[in-house]
């Protein structure tokens, strides 16, 4: 995209709406600070991933169609503050409707407008430095669907590297799954918990103050584990870091 879009649609995801509204506000504030008008389709609910990943395709299709219809009524790039929901829309919707050409046309019209938040900042707006400052020792957790699904690898990293004062540390098995996996976290809690504890142990080993990611699903799971252990490590969405810095 050669021209900077004037207006975007924000697909806030169900998790941010119900559990982390502040993260949504951070995304909006950053985009507005960059001179972009943000619209929030009021009737959006969920992308349908919980049903799809559990094998309920018919049900997932119902939710997906609703989401598609809502987004089709709008204009401009669609910003998704989650690698997982972004991957669901961009890569799984086409699978879901592979045999339904009418819906597939809707899918194509929507997916070509979809961007994960950091992908939009770096690839579309060409912004890698928000000139923010934050003193902390942070670890970045590349969530699986962001990294291996959407192939968004460097965008969040470069945004974080350019935060003055932020010491971004690497840690063991950094690219390994944290064990969330949506329904997996409650279907196989023991395995999920073990994966989570491995991740937390590696974060503790490097003395991180916070773990930053682009997916609130992973972070909600890790935050629950950190709280259970009484750990002092905080969780942050990338947008919160970038906004906190802007404010100071």
């Amino acid at each position: 995209m050669s021209e900077k879009p004037e207006k975007v649609q924000f697909f806030h995801t169900c998790l941010i709406n119900e559990f982390y509204p502040g993260v949504g506000m951070s995304v909006v504030n950053i985009l507005e600070r960059l001179g972009i008008t943000v619209e929030v389709p009021p009737d959006q609910t969920c992308c349908g991933q919980p049903a799809f990943n559990s094998g309920f395709s018919k049900e997932a299709r119902e939710v997906a169609l609703k989401t598609l219809d809502i987004l089709l009524e709008t204009e401009g790039p669609i910003i998704v503050p989650s690698g997982s929901c972004g991957d669901m829309i961009i890569h799984q919707y086409p699978q879901l409707f592979y045999d339904d050409s009418k819906s597939l046309a809707k899918v194509n019209a929507v997916t070509e407008r979809c961007y994960e938040f950091t992908q939009f900042l770096v690839d579309v707006l060409d912004i890698t430095d928000l000139r923010v400052r934050l003193n902390a020792r942070a670890a970045y957790h590349p969530s699986c669907h962001l990294l291996r699904g959407l192939k968004v690898e460097n965008q969040p990293k470069v945004l974080l590297e350019n935060v003055t004062g932020l010491d971004v540390v690497e840690f063991q098995d950094q690219e390994e799954c944290c064990g969330f996996g949506g329904m997996f976290s409650v279907k196989n809690p023991e395995i999920s918990g073990s994966m989570m504890n491995n991740k937390i142990a590696h974060l503790e080993a490097v003395g991180a103050d916070m773990v930053i990611s682009c997916d609130m699903g992973c972070l909600m799971h890790l935050e629950g584990g950190l709280h259970r252990r009484g750990s002092r490590i905080q969780v942050r969405h990338v947008a919160q870091i970038l906004e906190e810095g802007l404010a100071s």
């Binding site: 806030h12 509204p21 929030v40 809690p189």
Partner: peptide, 24 residues
């Protein structure tokens, strides 16, 4: 309903005000 979640981790309580409500 959340037994399998809290088996290994705590659950943060949902927000009092949703993002949509904040936005509106």
């Amino acid at each position: 309903p959340i037994r399998n979640w809290t088996k290994v981790r705590d659950l943060k309580t949902p927000a009092k005000t949703t993002f949509q409500q904040l936005w509106q």
